[in-house]
Amino acid sequence: MVRAFIRGLDWIVRQFTHGRHALHHQTILKIGLVIVSLFILVTVLANWSWTSGWFLPYNPVYYRSAPRLQGPSLQHPMGTDQLQRDVFSRVLAGGKAPIIVAFGAMALSMLVGSLLGWISGFTGGVLDRSLSLTMDAIYSFPSMILAIVLIAMLHPGLAPMIFSVGFVYIPTYFRVTRAKVLQVRETTYIEAARAVGVSSTRIVLRHIAPNTVNAIMAVSSFNLADAILTVAALSFLGFGLPAPAPDWGFDIQNGQGFLQSGFWWLITFPGLMIIILALGFGLVGEGISDLVNPKRKRKKT
């Protein structure tokens, strides 16, 4: 499993550094998908089976036979922490909260944002204007701060995290959807459909909805990447899941107390996981937006 993962990474680097045609956008999409699915697989297996021990080398939550605060070694490739746990096992299992919250938040914001966007774009008038203004207001506010304040007001847990992170992305979907709806609404075939007497619902479902889906797809992968970072930041600031659940952001915060004493491995490895996963989502987004929007494709000179 680890080897496959390292091969995957190797491959990414090769793709980026060799040859002109290596950067073909389909490849980017594929690399991203490989990373993301690998992470999901590892996280699911690790969280499913940490007591049975066939996937994770050690129990990531409670283990007291390893040395305390020891650097990377053969038995513990990423070292051990202050509670004598294996950092490698914790790192493998630590993606649960970021992945669940990122997808949950995306689903929430996509649903609410797009729905409002459709309604707004389709009805127009005062409703459209006030909704747009509200969304612009939220959009202009630093999303990280908004998410932190929201989560701080709620109890910790997966659902509140999904709500907080999801809330800040609603305007993104709203804007994308509304813009598409307006664009499509102006096109002649909608005018024609309306002239023929097709009902509004039918127009939305048949003509407008499919046209907005592509745009939303691209936006959502970028949002996933961003959400991973936001969730990690929330956990880092202490608004994540209760202990002892393995969680990258929480583990980094924990490592901060040991930074001065030089225990670098407590911080380094969970951070690398966040980077690679966020990068994976970013690449998927990059790939999709190139598929959806061929104009973005770089001109060959």
Partner: peptide, 16 residues
């Protein structure tokens, strides 16, 4: 447990 009031070690103490 409460995660910050008694310092950042609280979660660890609860875990043990």
């Amino acid at each position: 447990y409460t995660p910050k009031h008694y310092g950042s070690t609280e979660a660890d103490a609860a875990t043990v």
